[in-house]
Amino acid sequence: MNLMQIHNLTVQFGGLRAVNDLSLDVRRGELLCLLGPNGAGKSTTLDLICGKTRATSGQIVFEGQDITWLKEYKRARCGIGRKFQVPSVFRELTVLENIELARSRNPGILDSLRVFRTPIRGRVREVLQIVGLIDMVDTRAGNLSHGQTQWLEIAMLLAQDSKLILMDEPTAGMTIQETLQTAAIFNSLKGDHTIIVVEHDMQFVRQVAERVIVMNQGSLLAEGTIAGIEADPRVKAVYLGH
């Protein structure tokens, strides 16, 4: 069953078509990898889905609802979460405050006025344990190491509990071991959550991907399993050969 359908999506920046007539089905519970050379439109596709960029034409349907023109906070309320390329935790807030912010099931003001503390139990405790930050809840996020910052952001995504998670290079700047741990987390997320990942690290892609989409110049070039993609001569020509 499809969680999201993208129909003939196009976005034009001046003379450049960053995404050109892209159509794509995203299945519920799958982990989809977006590959492609620089400028292929991978990050722009994520931007279009989460609302950072508005489409020039085309349609995005999420769970049967046309979200093409929805504002970004409304898309988030529909269940779309986004992790950016640059770690974007809130550096002035503590680890626990970052998690509380991400727990946004009731994002209205009247609901927020009644919340005064974040009990460290249940899902919050679980999430903090998964990423190994359980002993650092009162640390300002700005004082974390680069790796810990990445972990915090993943913890925030877990706490947000989105149906669809969009990740832009989640393993950038991670050590090999951290990358492996991240892969393990992703594999545990599959099924309950649908994930779209933009990633350059082919080793990571081999670990997690079920279905791979290769983009080139804003359009879909190839689609298939990782083995099929790596054997595809067109993909080799534009991307993997480099």
């Binding site: 950072k52 974007s88 809130f90 807030l93 912010l101 994002p107 927020s112 009644r114 005064f116």
Partner: peptide, 30 residues
């Protein structure tokens, strides 16, 4: 009470990076 509630937390987050707050589903303008 406002500052110490989650509203205060959301507002401090808005001060730091309002765009990021939107992707968590908060209506920043409101």
């Amino acid at each position: 009470l406002i500052v110490r509630s989650k509203v205060g937390l959301v507002l401090r987050a808005i001060r730091e990076d309002s765009q990021r707050v939107r992707y968590f589903g908060y209506d920043v303008a409101r």
